[in-house]
Simulated assay, not measured.
Amino acid sequence: MSNLKVFFFILLFFLNFTYASAQPYVEKELLDKIGKKYKVFAKKRFYYLQKTLDSVKDANDLEKLDKVNTFFNDVRYKSDIKVYGKKDYWATPWEFLGKDMGDCEDYVISKYFALRYLGVDSKKLFFTYVRSSKFKAAHMVLTYFETPRSEPLILDNNNRKIFPASKRKDLTPIYNFNGESLYKAGKKGTGKKLKNKKTHKKWDELKLNMKRKKI
């Protein structure tokens, strides 16, 4: 076999291996379960999600943030009481997109895990508790910090565009949470780390439901 043929044989093998080893966001077995529970339209939503994620897999963080934020903001808002019969429930991304509805925490959770799948560093992503002057209520958004001292970008289901925190005068940050640590939010940067943080019950419950692939 000529050197050129050997080269193309190796290249073809490598490409096939790379394609075969690429993990989809939702594996086939789980996708089939979602289809059975939520029917064909839900399954199509997950196909479209995969297509959306694939379109920015080699893009920079800002492009990934924009695509993910836009995709999930098309899901309908609905309170936990109306969807789950509970005051406060953190849905898995599969429950959220399968039902095609959820509250602010559910948007944050789904955006977070989609961005983690795309390779965005978990140290840059935070679940941020805020107070909204517009709605006179507590709220949660996903924040992105380029560095621990950076001004965060806000991914919010109540606003389709991503803005730096200084442009969101309607939001007052309270706490930043990243699954490991809790910070008291400041005007800039991730804020002051709080000592003796207890385990976040909802986060632990979510991780367990993710592990069980709860739909």
Rank of each mutant, 00 (worst) to 15 (best):
D106A: 07
S150W: 09
D32P: 00
L11P: 00
E151F: 08
E29W: 04
N196F: 15
A137D: 15
D32I: 12
F17G: 06
D100G: 01
K167N: 09
K184W: 10
D32E: 15
D121K: 12
K187P: 02
R160C: 04
Y77N: 05
Y38P: 01
Y47M: 11
V120C: 02
Y175P: 02
D58E: 13
Y112R: 13
S150H: 08
K33E: 09
Y77M: 08
L125V: 09
A20W: 15
K28A: 13
W94C: 02
F113L: 13
Y19S: 10
V120N: 02
S132K: 02
S133W: 08
V83Q: 09
L65M: 07
T190K: 15
D66N: 12
T92G: 06
D156Q: 06
D106G: 06
E146L: 10
I109M: 04
K195R: 13
K57W: 10
N209Y: 09
V40F: 05
F163E: 14
F8R: 09
A165L: 15
L49E: 06
L115Y: 03
L118G: 02
K99E: 15
V141G: 01
N73C: 06
N157E: 12
R149G: 01
D121R: 10
I154W: 04
L11Y: 09
I34A: 04
A138F: 07
K86D: 10
K192Q: 13
L12R: 03
K198A: 07
F71N: 03
V75W: 00
A165M: 15
K86T: 10
Y107F: 15
K184E: 10
L53R: 04
G179L: 07
E105D: 11
S132G: 07
E29P: 00
V120T: 08
T70E: 10
F13P: 02
K195I: 05
R131W: 08
T199C: 03
N73S: 09
